[in-house]
């Protein structure tokens, strides 16, 4: 693999929720607020939770989860899915945030999507979550967008 020095246009994008969301297993996280440093290719759909990406760019997407569990002994998992609802595997750059309640496990609190050839849209889905839990507004997505 070769590397070479080149100044690449880069933007930072922050995506958040304007209000807390009551959610259960199978629900998508509904982000509705976007701030960015400049012109970029990211869009959001607050009704579906879809985060649109420009497939000609490269992305590092990190979602830091803040969750209030309805059951204090429950576990949760949030995983990235594409626009068709298919789970994005680690081979394709999707890494889940998984809190595993128990004395023999630790957790990953940040869900990451990173791919040099990104899909056109991603959604963050609660694949494991106690019914009527709350996704708090402190949940944030930070995106680094690089134009290659």
């Amino acid at each position: 693999m070769s590397y070479y020095s080149r100044k690449l246009p880069t933007q930072l994008i922050e995506i958040t929720m304007s209000s807390a969301q009551t959610a259960s297993q199978g629900d998508f996280v509904l982000f509705d607020t976007l701030r960015a440093t400049g012109t970029h290719g990211v869009t959001i759909n607050g009704a579906t939770g879809e985060i649109g990406l420009d497939t000609t760019k490269q992305y590092s997407v990190r979602a830091s989860m803040h969750v209030e569990r309805s059951n204090s002994t429950s576990s949760y998992t949030f995983a990235w899915h594409d626009s068709g609802g298919t789970l994005i595997t680690t081979a394709d750059g999707g890494y889940d945030a998984r809190f595993e309640d128990g004395i023999y496990s630790n957790s990953t609190y940040v869900a990451v999507y990173q791919n040099l050839n990104p899909v056109s849209a991603i959604r963050l889905k609660a694949t494991l979550l106690a019914a009527s839990s709350t996704i708090l507004t402190a949940t944030k997505v930070i995106i680094v967008e690089v134009t290659p």
Binding site: Y3, S5, R6, L8, Q58, Y59, L116, V144, V146
Partner: peptide
Amino acid sequence: FGFNFPAL
């Protein structure tokens, strides 16, 4: 600061 290619 700049980013080398591939950056990510």
